[in-house]
Amino acid sequence: MNRFSSLEFEDAGGKRPRKSTPGEPVRDAMYFYREAMGCYLAGDFEQALRSYSRALERNSVFLEAWAGQIRMLIELGEYPEAVIWADKAMEAFPNHPELIAAKAAACLRDAKPEKAMGFSDFSISQENAGPWVWLARAEVLMERKSRIGQECLSKALLEAGEAVNLIRLEAGRIDVRYGHYSAALELLEKTVRVWPKSALAWYELGRCQAHLGFSEAKAALEEALRLRPNWRPAAAELDRLKRTGPLKRAWRRFFAR
């Protein structure tokens, strides 16, 4: 113990930071952000949401964590809450395009396409519209069965920068969601090559392959289950796949797009 270790400072408050042992990572906002990303890639959206919250506890002006929370609420099907939380985040980041885009995505999933289009228009009109803005735009347009949706996905990938893998995964998921399986397949295959330990990526790839009638779907879903045992959606999808007859698979193989 050195002679200054017991000195008290004003900003120390009642709590003392826990001393970290050598080799242990510093549990700062970035640490929890990475943890949240890990949970997200494993398809554990509930845990990811908690980790994003913990990241925000450390740094309340961490935009990515706010946006992550909103995205997780959307993944969990809590759309009105996602909109409320986007508004809350916008108190710190007024009219941030990514947050407005998240609102658009939430409204779209909540079957409010007009509102979603409004928010999407507004988010695009902002400066520095990033990849998430284009992803939301793509989703809004795909909902309207517009062909421009695919171009918006390409635009999102171009804008992605360092986050290209994440955006690629999201783009693939959007394609799967709207039935563009062929387009999704390429994106998801690239994703699993980069993130071979992502249960979510394997699951989405498996779903995509299943819809295309590919026999590899089984292996992809089993891999997802191996990475995250007892994951209900993957197990259910695998079960559905096993119950799919050869005729249906052949039909999909030749006619699914």
Binding site: L49, S53, L56, E57, N59, S60, V61, Q69, I70, L73, L76, G77, E78, P80, E81, A82, I84, W85, K88, A92, F93, P94, N95, H96, E127
Partner: peptide, 20 residues
């Protein structure tokens, strides 16, 4: 220029979102 926060505000900030 845009009003975004640059540093964390003083005092506690609500970080847990509302749940359904």
């Amino acid at each position: 220029r845009c009003g975004s926060l640059l540093t964390a505000p003083e005092g506690p900030v609500e970080v847990a979102p509302p749940r359904m």
